[in-house]
Design a protein around this nucleic acid. Sequence first.
DNA 1: CTATTATTTTAGGCTTATCTAAAATAATAG
DNA 2: CTATTATTTTAGATAAGCCTAAAATAATAG
Lengths: 219, 219
Amino acid sequence: MHTFTEENYLKAIYKLEEQTGDTVINSDLAKALSIHSATVTDMLKKMSQKKLITYEKSKGFKLTGKGKKIAISIIRRHRLWEVFLVNNLGFGWDEVHDMAEQLEHVQSEDLVNRLDKYLGHPKADPHGDPIPNVNGEFAKSKAIPLSNLPVGKQGKFSGVIDHSSSFLSYLNKIEFALGDPIRVKSIEEYDNSYTLQLKNEKEIVVSSKFVNSILVIEI
Amino acid sequence: MHTFTEENYLKAIYKLEEQTGDTVINSDLAKALSIHSATVTDMLKKMSQKKLITYEKSKGFKLTGKGKKIAISIIRRHRLWEVFLVNNLGFGWDEVHDMAEQLEHVQSEDLVNRLDKYLGHPKADPHGDPIPNVNGEFAKSKAIPLSNLPVGKQGKFSGVIDHSSSFLSYLNKIEFALGDPIRVKSIEEYDNSYTLQLKNEKEIVVSSKFVNSILVIEI
DNA sequence: CTATTATTTTAGGCTTATCTAAAATAATAG
DNA sequence: CTATTATTTTAGATAAGCCTAAAATAATAG
């Protein structure tokens, strides 16, 4: 079907579009893929010919319907494999990214749909990211960054924005896991640090970076 | 680690060595991989430099210890994934080859060992092929081709030699599955066809090609 | 509006894995 | 032993993805 490289470009473009809500520019994509702009220019021409992206010189580009469909299917595969690795094989959520990056490229519609069924049609991966269904549709989420949760309100930890394994390991260390209750006790104006109340009345103080990296659902 | 291509060469060489019990020649490998001899010559030089094979111009070649170790680990991964696809995802044994060809290249020692554990350390894949353990050791097998099972003796279907999906589908059709009992009732001298007795006293007549494609254990 | 800075594109190269065609070498039949 | 056939190797190309360096273009500050 498509090469690994092409699939990685599609996925990266999709994520950049999602983040910025806008057309994507060459240099951002180059940075995201850790390659050089000149290489990106070349590849964009090819992908444009294949009608995977619309592309005008120096005006940014975006996925076509076709390109988007492929990107979403790759994300679906990635997240389903992550569920398998964590739920069935017992990996930590901070360990699965690289393996899922490989597994996502295995080509077989049948395989991914059977895996989905085997896993019980999960709605989210181990990081709380939504898993698109077989038609590429994402479940709507009411998640908001923890920084937007009003002080005193009860929330439930529903996902991470920062997927780095250093952040995930830190969450492991403080024993704060997906699904856990969370409440903002107070915000220190001086340095914008937050005092949070976790389960069992445990309190911790974290940075503003932290509260911007956590998604919660108000309950 | 190694490219897919290199891994595929190693696996193909391993299988050819196994079949012929001898050094492998360029043209056989080219045929096995459906590529041209000139390409093989090139690649052999590179693999020889990397000490994956020993290679002398026009004298055939064979895997080094290092090459063999990698080849066996690829076979291990392939067969474990096949078990997963059949036992857990419910694929037929005639459907899993292409998927396993992709999954076998996923790089992670940890993944394959956890998968092995998850599957209960299976000793054989869905076709009866032995799965090497974590140290690359194969369980010894007492399996013999059905053609070597003495007339009248009871055997147990323990593996296939022909892995083609046409053959596997045929076995599905006659409802002859791994583990089933089997007995040779008689051999027709005229055309070397065999009358076999399957489970529930069911009798079928098959060609000599058939009896050379089935492995059994005398019981 | 122009000078500086940022971004993109062009041009020329490299490596991997493949090909074809031709040359070289080895094996085999008579 | 030699002629024919089979096999392997060499030589020259190609496509995909990447690079660097330089040129072109666009954006922005003053």
